[in-house]
């Protein structure tokens, strides 16, 4: 059990600043998700925590002990699961899980016990005699987690462990993973580019871009109160709408942001609500079962061609004819304001 402190961490590959001054404080027992697109530095950050990459500058403390520098991966009290699972191909599932225990010369009997315990936890006892190639993706992923678990690590480092699973399996695997982490209460750092995974798993999310941390917060904070336009558009599907409404009450160069699910026909709101009403020229309506996506443009906008998306839940049965202009509205309390030049949040 241990928290992780990261101070002003940097990693340069030639001219590329893969990680560019990251400060992060990961609490004991926390499930922290590093979210970013490829090249955002999230994997490099994870690999530096693991000790597989040497930082150019900065400090890493795991459980109060400084580990950047010469503490090798094996001595950091971590366990890691790679995207490819990195199972040893010539070893059975049992031998794979036993591998970290053998490395530290654990007695035979204890190995047996621990492996069985871990395999039981992930219900893969049946497969202990098989080879990795005889397993499905989901089973391999669980073997990799088992192997991480038997080390009894202070910290779990997971590098996109669900990315290789098919979409159906990913949901259950996500649930399993979260329950497992709650149960063992071990600090976990999880890297992903999938914002749904990040929202679903993380106690807190770290949004990264170009080697820098953009925002750290709970899924709710990151979703509802993005600190800048990058986070606003990166988190959420479809992304937040950002418009310059040329509102005289706002300072020049202010972008107004609102989530697609908050942009609804004027008529569905009650009379007492404080609304920002816009004229919405509907181009196309996409029927998705539980929702309808309405694509169009806002006529008040400084760039009237920019596509704006409204997401209407199935509970709103109102007909929205394509090619017509409708009155839509967003509750004012749900509007977010950003500076157009810097992208940063701004008070209205």
């Amino acid at each position: 059990m241990a928290g992780i402190e990261i101070r002003n961490l940097r990693k340069q590959f030639g001219d590329l600043h893969a990680v560019d001054g990251v400060d992060l404080s990961i609490r004991d027992g926390e499930f922290l998700v590093l979210l970013g697109s490829s090249g955002s530095g999230k994997t490099t950050l994870l690999r530096m925590i693991a000790g597989l990459e040497r930082p150019t500058a900065g400090e890493i403390h795991i459980g109060g002990e400084r580990v950047d520098g010469d503490v090798p991966p094996r001595a950091r009290g971590i366990a890691m699961v790679f995207q490819s699972y990195a199972l040893y191909p010539h070893r059975t599932v049992f031998q794979n899980i036993a591998f970290p225990l053998e490395a530290v010369r654990t007695p035979r009997k204890e190995i047996e016990e621990k492996v069985r315990w871990a395999a039981d936890m992930f219900s893969i006892t049946r497969y202990l005699d098989r080879y990795p190639r005889q397993l499905s993706g989901g089973e391999r992923q669980r073997v990799a987690l088992c192997r991480a678990l038997v080390r009894d690590p202070k910290v779990f480092l997971l590098d996109e462990p669900l990315a290789n699973l098919d979409a159906k399996l990913r949901n259950t695997a996500r649930d399993d993973l979260k329950r497992f982490q709650r149960q063992i209460q071990t600090t976990t750092v999880y890297v992903t580019h999938d914002q749904v995974e990040a929202m679903g798993l993380g106690d807190r999310i770290v949004v990264m871009e170009h080697g820098k941390v953009r925002q750290v917060g709970t899924p709710q904070e990151v979703y509802e109160d993005p600190v800048d336009t990058f986070v606003a558009t990166f988190v959420g599907q479809p992304p937040m709408n950002l418009l310059d409404l040329r509102d005289p009450s706002l300072a020049a160069g202010t972008l107004v942001g609102f989530r697609p699910e908050h942009l609804l026909p004027r008529s569905v709101f009650g009379p007492g609500e404080d609304l920002r009403t816009v004229r919405f020229a509907v181009r196309r309506v996409e029927y998705l079962g539980s929702d309808r996506y309405v694509y169009g443009s806002v006529l008040e906008s400084a760039a009237p061609d920019a596509t704006v998306i409204a997401k209407l839940p199935a509970t709103i049965a109102l007909a929205i004819p394509e090619g017509e202009t409708h009155e839509f509205a967003v509750p004012r309390r749900l509007l977010r304001y950003f500076d157009a030049a810097s992208g940063l949040r701004r008070r209205p």
Partner: peptide
Amino acid sequence: PWEIEEQAMIDGYSRLAVILKVAPRL
């Protein structure tokens, strides 16, 4: 994949031990 060797380094082997014990089999 290099990851298998990295995994071995995390799992308790030094780089030298990985080269001598894990890599040959791979």
